[in-house]
């Protein structure tokens, strides 16, 4: 009899431990190191952005946040890993807007399709594209450039970072909005080969991003004609905003933080709060300001809505492009 009683007590104790375990885990979150997956190579601008964020997230959570680079496949390989990871809050990653929204439209083999397939923790930053030309180019304003584009359709070439990359799409957006034809030329080196081609006079212009391009503008090696974003872009305050001039061409290179679907509620809340704290920290603000990122603190819902709009924009643009090439 005593034997049985002991069994029951043991069983109860075990049951107690088992039921207590998940909530204890969530309360203790994070009880071990967190992995932050960056779907790009170290080098380039998204890796430093991730590391700057991870350093602040470490402070907010008092745990190590280990940055792991999982590059390849237009950032889908790393993104897939995050989406498929165990939803315990210990694997999160950088979400690149093109990988999240454009890639599912053209690739059926991904673990995600829409924002319903992963959780958005926070928005990090946007980087608007800048239209740059040689300093001795005949155009001093965007209007002059546009006039020449209208005069000789298809003859003005602008370097982008790959066919149907974000930089290509923003130029196509402009082509559609202004009903003109700028020819895009893909330069895929990733190390600013498009900028080199502009400096060398091989093409007329390029779409450049972030600190690398800003440095060339400041040094007088390139001239900026316009920015593909509304309002003033701090690093080049005198450059014209192209959308403000009436041409809807605004797709930025955007970054957010994502996690796999199905995080326990309290883990998600903790992660969202800590991430927003990290984004608001003076160190992260300083980093983004220095490197041409535009801080954009949005709630997960707002990011989700924004990505949805971006998806619609991509779908519309692709249809427009397909129709145009079919008409040829």
């Amino acid at each position: 009899m005593r034997h049985v009683a002991r069994r029951i007590v043991q069983g109860l104790a075990a049951a107690l431990v088992l039921t207590a375990a998940p909530s204890a885990q969530a309360q203790d979150y994070p009880s071990r190191d967190i992995t932050f997956i960056v779907p790009f190579n170290p080098g380039g601008s998204s890796d430093p952005l991730s590391r700057a964020f991870a350093a602040q997230l470490e402070k907010a959570l008092s745990r190590n946040v280990n940055v792991e680079n999982k590059p390849g496949g237009s950032a889908t390989i790393g993104t897939n890993l995050v989406v498929r990871a165990n939803p315990d809050g210990y694997t999160i990653g950088l979400g690149d807007s093109a990988a999240l929204m454009y890639q599912p439209l053209v690739n059926k083999d991904l673990a995600y399709k829409t924002t319903d397939d992963y959780e958005i923790i926070t928005k990090l930053a946007d980087v608007p594209g800048m239209l740059v030309v040689r300093p001795d180019a005949p155009w001093n304003t965007f209007e002059e450039f546009l006039a020449d584009v209208k005069k000789s359709p298809g003859k003005i070439r602008v370097g982008v970072s790959g066919v149907r990359s974000i930089s290509d799409m923003v130029v196509q957006q402009f082509n559609r909005a202004a009903d003109v034809k700028i020819t895009t030329v893909p330069f895929t080196g990733g190390g600013g080969e498009a900028l080199l081609a502009v400096m060398g006079g091989r093409i007329e212009g390029a779409v450049g991003y972030g600190g690398n391009t800003i440095a060339q503008i400041e040094a007088g090696k390139l001239k900026v004609l316009g920015v593909f974003a509304k309002g003033k872009y701090e690093p080049v305050p005198n450059a014209m905003s192209i959308p403000d001039a009436g041409y809807n061409a605004t797709i930025p290179s955007g970054y957010s933080v994502i996690a796999p679907k199905g995080l326990p509620n309290d883990v998600r809340e903790k992660l969202v709060a800590a991430s927003q704290e990290a984004v608001r920290s003076p160190e992260f603000k300083e980093f983004t300001k220095k490197n041409g990122f535009v801080l954009d603190l949005k709630s997960p819902h707002e990011v989700s809505a924004e990505l949805g709009e971006l998806r619609n924009e991509f779908v519309g643009l692709i249809e427009w492009l397909d129709k145009k090439s079919a008409a040829k």
Binding site: G211, N212, A215, Q216, E286, F287, K290
Partner: peptide, 9 residues
């Protein structure tokens, strides 16, 4: 970039 040194000319 992480160090806050802007590379460029």
């Amino acid at each position: 970039m992480v160090h806050g040194v802007q590379p460029g000319p």
